[in-house]
């Protein structure tokens, strides 16, 4: 078990290194093709050569390799790794510490993900199990139809419809009826409110969670169906156990193995969806931050955020693998 964990962690670190390197290459080529991003610092003004080189130096963009197309710029890469290892993640183009930016943005993303995960589990597990239990019946067809419908409706369409069609009238009505600080009004507020970070992410989170739950519903259903007809479930029934006991201990428990592996995949999908959700709903989170950083070619911020997201993803994947090993005794002794 210890060796298994160690191996997974080492693999994670290697993956992280590769992600950072790839990111470095991409941004390097972008700079080489598009010109010095330090120019963005000056907005519309035209800086003098001295000003430009001072700013470039401040953001680590003064290395001559950035002017040679195709040069992989190993020097700045090594420097950046060194900085990262010493806990220095640099500043954005406005001079704010990336760590402090992330510290304000990450909790909002975390809140969003809390709602997303809860939605997956509740909707996915509940509807998936119900469909499996009532296989072939109307309920089953209904749930499967529902999941296909969600799939056919991309998350950004859902969000745009929600924001521009539903929130405005409901919010106006709730504001008039209960006051602008009432729970209902805040719940349907068309954009994020940093004074009420939890309430205002609930509905965007549910919508994003629903989008991810479509695949989840079908997976839970398929995994449970496989168990409903399996020999070990029949053997368990032959012991005279109640159907409920068999369902909880033999069907849901055994089907949790493939479901746990899928959590990792759905999670990365939701991470991508979070960028869109935070963009549309103006949530000040990691996704929204990344969206703006790319628009401003804020290299340090992009690399910082993507590195962090990569770390989160890798940690989730390792956790999923460990969960998998914990759920399936056949894995542990490999």
């Amino acid at each position: 078990m210890g060796r298994y964990v160690l191996r997974r962690v080492l693999q994670g670190i290697l993956t992280l290194f590769l992600v950072i390197f790839l990111l470095h290459l991409l941004t390097t080529f972008a700079i080489q093709l598009n010109g010095n991003p330090a120019l963005a610092f000056f907005g519309d003004r035209v800086p003098t050569q001295a000003q430009l080189s001072a700013v470039s130096a401040r953001f680590g963009l003064d290395d001559p390799c950035y002017n040679q197309l195709g040069n992989p710029c190993f020097g700045p890469f090594v420097n950046r790794l060194k900085d990262y290892l010493s806990g220095d993640f640099g500043t954005n183009l406005r001079g704010r510490e990336i760590t402090s930016i992330v510290a304000t943005a990450a909790p909002n993303s975390f809140r969003l993900f809390l709602v997303v995960t809860a939605t997956w589990l509740v909707v996915g597990m509940f509807l998936g199990s119900t469909a499996a239990r009532r296989r072939g019946k109307v309920v089953d067809h209904g749930i499967r139809g529902f999941s296909v419908m969600i799939d056919a409706l991309p998350v950004f369409v859902m969000l745009l419809v929600y924001r521009y069609v539903i929130t405005v009238p409901v919010y106006t009505w709730a504001k008039k009826q209960f006051g602008s600080d009432s729970f209902i009004a805040l719940l349907f507020k068309p954009s994020f409110d940093s004074d009420h970070p939890m309430i205002t992410v609930i509905i965007p989170g549910i919508l994003l969670g629903l989008a991810g739950s479509a695949a989840f519903i079908r997976l839970v259903r398929a995994a449970q169906l496989e168990n409903y007809n399996s020999d070990h479930v029949r053997a368990a029934r032959s012991k005279g156990l109640s159907e409920r006991h068999v369902r909880v201990f033999h069907i849901v428990r055994n089907s949790s193995i493939p479901v746990a592996t899928a959590v990792g995949i759905v999670f990365t999908e939701a991470l991508a969806g979070a960028v869109i959700t935070e963009g549309v709903m103006n949530i000040y989170g990691m996704g929204g931050l990344l969206w703006n950083a790319v628009r401003d070619s804020d290299v340090s911020l992009i690399i910082g955020i993507v590195t962090l997201l990569a770390i989160v993803t890798i940690v989730v994947m390792i956790l999923v693998d460990l969960l998998y090993a914990a759920l399936d005794p056949r894995i542990r002794y490999e």
Partner: peptide
């Protein structure tokens, strides 16, 4: 429930009939 008390059943493929977890 009645059969669970009075009748035992041995299945063909023990690997499949035992729960792996």
């Amino acid at each position: 429930a009645y059969c669970g008390e009075h009748i035992g059943m041995v299945f063909q493929d023990a690997l499949a009939a035992l729960n792996p977890v």
